[in-house]
């Protein structure tokens, strides 16, 4: 995972990733339409979206960096900061709040050592945030850890869930 440092930025769109983007471009009549997929590729490679990553995407798709940033900041899943290895996203919207999602958040904050929402734990392993509806309200409380859903989470299950994370 990249840190918040000024390490030289290695371009993402070379070799296999470039080929992947080229294939994506065939799906749309405009280059710009590949913006969201291209940003996903950078985030997969770098773990988050540094400014240099946005600049690279802008150059590849013929856009400006400011425009790309405007798009990045619109969508909550694009990370503008590096996070812990395990990015824990707890749904706290109304149906999950009914099921006690706020207590689940507290449990994660306590057991990860993050203490505060959005902060990364001192060991760099965890970042906990609240998110809006994950679309799994019948399985409250759903928690998305990196890309995977864990459903029916209760405060009691949190230590076991954390222990299961590699």
């Amino acid at each position: 995972m990249s840190g918040h440092t000024d390490a030289p930025y290695e371009p993402v769109f070379v070799g296999k990733r470039r080929a992947e983007l080229d294939e994506l471009l065939t799906r749309y009549p405009t280059k710009q339409a590949a913006l969201l997929p291209a940003l996903w590729i950078v985030q997969e490679e770098r773990g988050w979206l540094p400014e240099a990553g946005m600049t690279e995407v802008a150059a590849v798709l013929g856009l400006t960096a400011a425009y790309v940033k405007g798009v990045v900041t619109f969508y909550t899943m694009y990370k503008q900061h590096p996070t812990g290895t395990h990015f824990i996203q707890v749904c706290t919207t109304s149906p999950c709040l009914c099921a006690g999602a706020d207590k689940v958040v507290d449990a994660f904050l306590e057991h990860t050592g993050c203490k505060e929402l959005g902060l990364t734990s001192p060991d760099g392993k965890y970042t906990v945030i609240e998110v809006e509806c994950l679309g799994a309200c019948g399985f409250a409380t759903p928690v998305q850890i990196n890309l995977d859903y864990v459903e029916n989470v209760t405060p009691e299950k949190v230590p076991t869930i954390l222990a299961g994370l590699k």
């Binding site: 799906r27 339409a33 969201l36 798009v71 969508y75 998110v131």
Partner: peptide, 29 residues
């Protein structure tokens, strides 16, 4: 007949049909 998956990135409003189209075009939703 071509069918493609386009992955959103976290925005409720993209479920509104015209926002969805903007998002698909690589714009703010």
């Amino acid at each position: 007949v071509d069918v493609y998956v386009h992955k959103g990135a976290g925005a409720y409003i993209c479920g509104e049909e015209t926002a969805l189209m903007n998002s698909l075009e690589g714009k703010r939703g």
